[in-house]
Computed example of a mutant assay.
Amino acid sequence: MASFIKALLLVVVAEMGDKTQLLAMAMASKYKAKQVLLGVLVATILNHALAVAVGSYLSTMIPMNVVKIVAAVSFLVFGLWTIRGDKLEDEENKKVKFGPIVTVAIAFFLAEMGDKTQLMTITIAAENTQPLFILMGTTVGMLIADGIGILGGAWMCRHIPEVYIKWVAGIVFMFFGTLTLYNSVSNSLLTPLYISLFLGILGVLIYLFGVKFAYFGQVCERKVIKIEESEVVNE
């Protein structure tokens, strides 16, 4: 159950502001929320089942201590990725001759390939020995996060600056990464010199990804534009 809760919470955090959440929000402007969520469910089960299988396989091939260090570094990377933000290409605009649920499932599955949440699912699965709970946790986490995007995206965009959402999520990831790294590396590396060096490098990376090369306004701008277009049409 602990694996389920951990996977659920980390995926919810990872998905906030992610391009697949934006895709779900965009699809919700075309189809009913129930159809979008069903499509997300189908795509997530297929995509994350693949990710969990890969992660479980890696855990049998690589020593656990190495897995934990790789997981820690991965969480730090996910944190930097999150504060940089993400942008949606044109997945929602591609012409697919299927019904709403299948259309959403295909677009979502393709968008999730190589995405942050899929890579994180592989990492969590490699770290744990309960693949079914990991799959359940990540699937429920995706539904919660994308449900928030679909149902509460408009309110969040109007009342909470997107940059706050990205930074809170990114800090959560970097905290988990730092804690896991601290518990995994040799004591000989836990000296003031190495800790200061680590914090200095992390600080520079946070500045580069969170300020210098960050995507600003990607999620909310697209959502607000769609809301305004819908209001104009209704008038």
Rank of each mutant, 00 (worst) to 15 (best):
L37T: 00
V54F: 07
L208D: 10
M142I: 09
P192M: 12
I69P: 02
M1Y: 12
M25S: 07
I225W: 13
D86M: 15
P131A: 11
A24E: 02
L208I: 15
E127I: 03
G210M: 04
Y182K: 10
E235Y: 15
T123G: 06
L38F: 10
K116G: 09
S196T: 15
G17E: 01
A214G: 02
V172D: 08
V96C: 00
V36Y: 02
S186H: 10
W81T: 05
E229Y: 13
V232E: 14
G114D: 05
A49E: 03
I195E: 13
G170E: 10
E15M: 13
S59A: 02
K223Q: 11
I122S: 09
F98R: 00
K212F: 11
V40Q: 03
K212E: 04
T139P: 10
F173I: 08
M27H: 01
S29F: 15
L10F: 14
I134V: 15
K30D: 13
I165G: 07
W167C: 07
M142P: 03
L76A: 04
I148M: 04
A51F: 09
L38M: 14
G99K: 06
Y207L: 05
T178H: 11
G177Y: 02
T121R: 00
M136P: 02
V163G: 03
K87M: 13
R158C: 05
S29I: 05
F175Y: 15
L135G: 10
L119S: 09
S196Q: 04
R222H: 12
L151D: 02
S59W: 00
L193S: 15
F75T: 03
L80D: 05
L58S: 02
L208K: 14
F109L: 10
E112T: 14
G170H: 04
K94W: 01
G17N: 05
L46G: 06
V40Y: 02
G55V: 01
S56Q: 01
M16D: 00
L9Q: 11
S3C: 05
S184W: 07
I124G: 01
D86W: 12
L135R: 10
H159N: 14
I122V: 15
F198C: 08
S188H: 11
V73F: 13
N65E: 15
S29R: 14
E91G: 09
R222I: 09
G203R: 11
I195K: 14
A145K: 05
T191Y: 11
